[in-house]
């Protein structure tokens, strides 16, 4: 066991464990979207879990830091908050904010983070830049809504973990990146029927279980 100090509070955790996980386990919330407990190599792509660590010039993404004995960590400095707000603002600028009509309303991670950072869901500084990508209807049981997706990759991770070969994955790149179900339809009928792990893990309601599955007639 190692002890470290987070926001003047002493916490104890397993040596070599992940800093973000250690903080979350001890009731210290750090905003995060792409981190999943149990993920071996966190992608660190959401750029939200920044903390300042004594001895480092720049804030670091806590999901990519292993705890060390005597670490002194601050999660709420001005520098950290500025980075988090900017990253969050950029995410929001491509997010179709329509909470009232969104099934994830009230359990959405974006709403939680906005509340935590005292940051309105309405953009003030940036102009919205919504992506012109169509909803994917092809999957028999699932619906993907790209304008809600934050591309955290949790769905790809859980699917790979549960099914070995994932049934969905990132496609295209840059601003056009989406989650795609490309693949064998009959396999999807078989595998996805009782799984829905991806829809359950989705933090923002971008992956939904269809009300009426469109199973092709045999």
């Amino acid at each position: 066991m190692v002890t470290l100090i987070v926001d003047n509070q002493e916490i104890e955790t397993q040596e070599g464990s992940n800093l973000l996980q250690a903080c979350l386990d001890n009731g210290i919330y750090i905003p995060n979207l792409c981190y999943l407990s149990g993920i071996e190599d966190p992608p660190g792509s959401c750029r939200l879990c920044f903390v300042e660590i004594e001895g480092y010039d720049q804030p670091r993404t806590s999901c990519r830091v292993r705890v060390q004995q005597g670490m002194v960590v601050k999660t709420n400095t001005e520098h950290v908050r500025r980075l988090q707000k900017t990253a969050f603002e950029l995410l929001l600028s491509t997010h179709h904010v329509d909470c009232r009509n969104c099934p994830a309303n009230k359990k959405c991670e974006l709403q939680r983070i906005a509340k935590f950072l005292h940051f309105g869901l309405k953009l003030k500084r940036l102009e919205p830049l919504e992506r012109d990508i169509e909803v994917e209807h092809e999957h028999p049981f699932l619906e993907y809504i790209p304008t809600r997706c934050v591309l955290c990759g949790k769905c790809v991770f859980v699917c790979r973990k549960r099914n070995g070969q994932p049934m969905l994955s990132f496609a295209k790149r840059g601003f056009d990146t989406v989650i795609s179900f490309f693949g064998e339809k009959d396999k999807a009928l078989d595998v996805c029927k009782e799984c829905y792990a991806c829809a359950e893990i989705c933090p923002v309601g971008a992956l939904l279980v269809k009300d009426s599955p469109n199973i092709p007639n045999p």
């Binding site: 070969q165 994932p166 049934m167 969905l168 994955s169 990132f170 496609a171 295209k172 790149r173 795609s180 179900f181 490309f182 693949g183 064998e184």
Partner: peptide, 20 residues
């Protein structure tokens, strides 16, 4: 899909690489 089958990869992974 044929390529995915041959290399024992998931089709959507192959698609992801190709569209990148």
């Amino acid at each position: 899909q044929m390529v995915a089958k041959h290399l024992r990869l998931s089709s959507c992974d192959v698609y992801g690489v190709a569209t990148f």
